[in-house]
Amino acid sequence: MNFRQLEIFRALMIGGSASRAAELLRVTQPAVSRAISELESRIGFPLFDRVKGRLIPTPEGQLFFNDVNNAFVGLDSLRSSAARIRDFGSGSLRIASLAALGSTLVPRAVRRFRETNPHTSITLQVLSSSGVRDAVANQQFDIGLAADEVDLSGVDHSVFQSARAVAVMPPDHPLTKNDVIYAQDLHNMAFISLAPEDRARSRIADTFEAVGARPHIVVETPASMTICALALQGVGIGLVNPMASDGFEKRGLVIRPYEPAVFFKSYILFRPDAQRARLVREFTSALNDVLRIGAKD
């Protein structure tokens, strides 16, 4: 039993006659009859009854056709999959991001990417940095953006961004009169802090310790965007990744430079070998383009 025999059998069942099968496959009618006879000999039961020059499928032949047809449907699916991989990489792209980038920079990159890949299916999820790393390591996502506190084992990675922290506060905060916020300015101030496991928090704490400042932590949260939202509501002042503050200034949030410099660092993560896929390469390029454009603004 070989593929050509099965292909001819399927064409005969679909076409309804040996002549039609021969026409569909561009072979001679004797070649169709010979292939069917060889297939019947190989499988050990008749596929057709010969009635007055016509081929009538036997019950066994009909059952066998159902399985053969299902196999060909699977092959058609494989052909479509191969075409998608050839033309679009995987045909879909799954992206996971930390919140600071997942609602600002990443959507801009998605828009840029879709200009040249309008038919690609995209999944975007905003997760904690550890969740991003796990999702990529477990091959649930193709690309991840995570803060530098994550475990980088099991994933390909490179540094993506290093952004200098800014201070955010409500418009009626007493420090709005300052052009620059210094670490010592935050002594005894109501302070909205990042979560303890965040490495940026440790770097911020070092700047406080260097000048003996003791801010009063009123809320802890893992997301810079949440700090912005809390600061806008008058809860306190915070230090955030500037990407997370995008759009908040129009709503009244006051943003000031912070001294000494503290940097929020992020990594771009890939499944092993995923960087070879065209879609992954193109989306990575879109991310870098948007990051570069933002740096110029």
Rank of each mutant, 00 (worst) to 15 (best):
233 Q>L: 11
230 L>C: 03
224 S>D: 10
222 P>A: 13
217 I>E: 11
228 C>G: 07
243 M>S: 13
237 I>A: 03
192 I>S: 00
172 D>S: 14
211 V>T: 10
188 N>T: 15
146 A>K: 00
247 G>T: 10
189 M>K: 13
159 V>F: 08
167 A>M: 06
186 L>Y: 03
172 D>M: 06
204 I>G: 01
169 M>N: 02
203 R>P: 06
195 A>R: 11
200 A>S: 15
223 A>R: 06
231 A>D: 09
221 T>W: 03
210 A>S: 13
230 L>H: 11
209 E>F: 04
218 V>T: 08
226 T>C: 03
222 P>M: 11
177 K>Q: 15
156 D>S: 12
211 V>L: 05
211 V>F: 05
198 D>V: 09
246 D>R: 10
232 L>Y: 08
211 V>M: 01
148 D>Q: 07
201 R>V: 03
227 I>L: 11
152 L>R: 15
159 V>C: 01
191 F>N: 00
152 L>D: 09
197 E>M: 06
238 G>N: 02
203 R>C: 09
174 P>C: 07
199 R>L: 15
195 A>L: 08
179 D>G: 15
216 H>E: 11
194 L>A: 05
233 Q>T: 04
148 D>Y: 08
245 S>I: 03
245 S>T: 08
144 G>N: 05
194 L>T: 02
166 V>Q: 08
199 R>N: 10
146 A>T: 00
146 A>F: 00
168 V>S: 02
234 G>Q: 03
243 M>N: 13
200 A>K: 05
203 R>N: 14
169 M>Q: 02
147 A>F: 10
151 D>K: 09
209 E>A: 14
147 A>T: 12
241 N>E: 12
204 I>S: 02
186 L>F: 01
194 L>S: 04
156 D>K: 06
147 A>D: 13
246 D>H: 10
235 V>T: 14
189 M>V: 13
223 A>H: 10
230 L>Q: 12
206 D>P: 02
153 S>F: 09
158 S>E: 15
246 D>C: 09
176 T>H: 02
169 M>D: 01
209 E>Y: 08
215 P>W: 06
174 P>F: 03
214 R>F: 11
161 Q>D: 14
155 V>F: 08
152 L>E: 10
180 V>G: 10
217 I>S: 09
221 T>P: 03
226 T>L: 09
228 C>P: 07
241 N>W: 07
177 K>G: 05
198 D>N: 13
218 V>D: 03
180 V>I: 15
244 A>H: 01
232 L>C: 05
207 T>H: 01
163 A>T: 02
206 D>N: 14
150 V>F: 04
214 R>M: 12
176 T>Q: 08
174 P>H: 06
244 A>K: 01
156 D>W: 09
165 A>D: 10
172 D>A: 03
158 S>K: 14
232 L>T: 07
216 H>C: 06
241 N>F: 02
163 A>V: 02
211 V>H: 06
242 P>L: 11
213 A>L: 06
196 P>A: 13
173 H>K: 03
